[in-house]
Design a protein around this nucleic acid. Structure first.
Lengths: 339, 339
DNA sequence: TTGAAAGCGCTAACAA
DNA sequence: TTGTTAGCGCTTTCAA
């Protein structure tokens, strides 16, 4: 593995010039640059990120912290962030917190602090003041995706509006007995996302002059199985069976579709179902849903970070950037059956 | 952010001693070590990985290269590797190749070479000689998971045996008209995994004295939707409808279950279905499958790497370590219907 | 057991 | 435009 001095030797210049030529900073004559580039290539030279990082204080690496990796949503965000970082010449170091409390502590107390990363993207995480504090003290920008972290630039979707849109879609089709499968206490811990979706749901009902009936709510854990169980409860009752279900995630919505099927109920003729996500399976199940775009979210987070790391563009991003979402109507929603 | 000299000052020793005390290398008196540890903690000192890496040549970081991130299998492998690395004090830097050829080149030509990682774990990837060559030249160990990379320590599952086991399960129940949903050309490119599973399938049939019928094979892309389509083809034919389907992945198997349902065929009474993976959804669908343990695979890869990085244990791992798999019988397989 | 000091490979003033 | 040189923060001989 050749070092910068071998390149300098071969190109007949000083190491400083090599550094300048390769980094693009500082003035280098075209001819010299050519020679340096050529020498570097012919030697297969690649800078040592350690040495460069030590000298500059920046590593061209960003840390991405997530609560889970195995959910479609998170891996999609990461995929978006990864390709965007790569395009910017940055590496992505992954910190998965699913191990639990001890793991979380060690990530924040040690790993993130050892100057390995220039910045941090925190996905669907509520950081404590001390966690953000230490990072910010180090001068490392943080961008949060999916939840309000005080004092930090964040990207988030307006869950109240998302739920309202889904509910209004059902209302506009004529449904009046609409059930909601939302999050349980466990999933609530992180982000109040379930609560916000429930609030939007109830607000839309209220606007339509409908009461919110506790019986029409079931809590689940955002998985297909959870949605299945919850929907069985909802659809199995002998009286006031809902004609539509709004599930707070596509996986739960798909579970609900399967539950309806198992009960012999036809979707959408007898039960309409709408979810949230536009999960990769949504198309396959013909699921009507509110699309959010996780890969785009990852990409947007990176763009904001790049702006912070390379200040130049003067257009400061707002402290909280709203994330886009859209109603995607497929085949699981229709008018309620005549009664 | 305090540096090593502040710790040294506070502890009343030299920086060399601090380094020794914290790294555990070299002799330090118990009393001194105590003082150093205490000073470090009270200052919130964390080593700079850049400086330490520059001085030692090792970074305590490993690169993990994967072809996709969003499939259950891959994110599970990563999750296993990540937690295991964390436990060893290592970071995980992720390189996702799903972007395509250009991305792959830049990862191998630049990113992996800039001395950011001590080692590389390549998941389900067939590396070219030049790709492995460069890495190995740098003295960076490589461990492959899921495919034979020449000259590199690998972990892999015996796909022929996996397929044989699945098929034998069906045969032992009395099935004689068994279809196979395998991989298409696209998915074949990487690992010959589909071919190997087909080979095992046909070998098992042959051993049972059954011919392999090309009509009973359908290619798909390892997704639920692909499995659904393939199964529709298989189960829709008017003559010699298979009584059992062996799908090369659980997602395809689940697609097959849904296809059977849509055709009004009862699983397992009229069609038995078996998959491979023990996907997180397998339990929910009651799917009989051959379990492989991706998180464990990630963890095992890390263990092998740690042995290579910290030579001490003399027990060299074999060049290729076989990965475990097990038949998990649930509710989607039974005897064929009487004819 | 401890300390002094020489790097690790690069970057960025500063000077030329 | 280019070269000289002093670090970046740590580890590791070597000597005490």
């Amino acid at each position: 593995m050749p070092g910068i001095d071998e390149v300098a030797l071969l190109a007949g210049v000083s190491t400083a010039t090599v550094s300048r030529a390769l980094s693009g900073k500082g003035q280098v004559s075209v001819a010299t640059r050519e020679r340096v580039l050529h020498a570097a290539k012919s030697l297969g030279y690649v800078v040592s990120s350690n040495a460069s990082g030590l000298a500059t204080g920046r590593t061209r690496n960003v840390g991405v912290v997530i609560p889970f990796l195995r959910r479609w949503f998170y891996s999609s965000v990461i995929e978006g962030a990864e390709s965007s970082l790569l395009a910017n010449g940055y590496d992505l170091t992954l910190y998965n917190l699913s191990g639990g409390g001890e793991e979380r502590r060690s990530v924040f107390e040690h790993f993130l602090l050892r100057k390995r990363v220039d910045a941090v993207i925190a996905i669907s995480l509520e950081l404590t003041a001390s966690e953000t504090g230490r990072l910010l003290d180090l001068g490392k920008p943080i961008v949060g995706v999916g939840g309000p972290i005080p004092g930090v630039r964040t990207l988030s979707i307006d869950d109240v509006l998302v739920a309202r849109l889904a509910t209004e879609h059902l209302l506009s089709l004529g449904h009046t007995v609409i059930a909601h499968i939302g999050g349980d206490a466990e999933s609530e811990r992180d982000f109040h996302l379930p609560t916000n979706r429930r609030v939007g749901f109830e607000a839309a009902l209220a606007d339509a002059g409908l009461p919110s009936e506790p019986d029409l709510f079931e809590a689940a854990d955002f998985t297909m199985e959870g949605g299945y169980r919850a929907a069985k409860q909802l659809l199995g009752r002998p009286h006031r069976r809902p004609t539509a279900i709004f599930a707070a995630s596509d996986e739960m919505a798909i579970g609900a579709i399967l539950a309806a099927r198992d009960l012999g109920l036809h979707v959408p003729a007898e039960v309409s179902v709408i979810g949230v996500d536009d999960h990769e399976l949504a198309e396959f199940f013909g699921l009507t849903t509110i699309a959010q775009y996780p890969a785009l979210q990852g990409q947007m987070a990176v763009e904001i970070l790049m702006d912070e790391l390379h200040p130049g563009g003067e257009d400061r991003h707002a402290l909280n950037t709203p994330l886009p979402f859209d109603l995607v109507v497929r085949q699981t929603t229709t008018r309620p059956p005549p009664r």
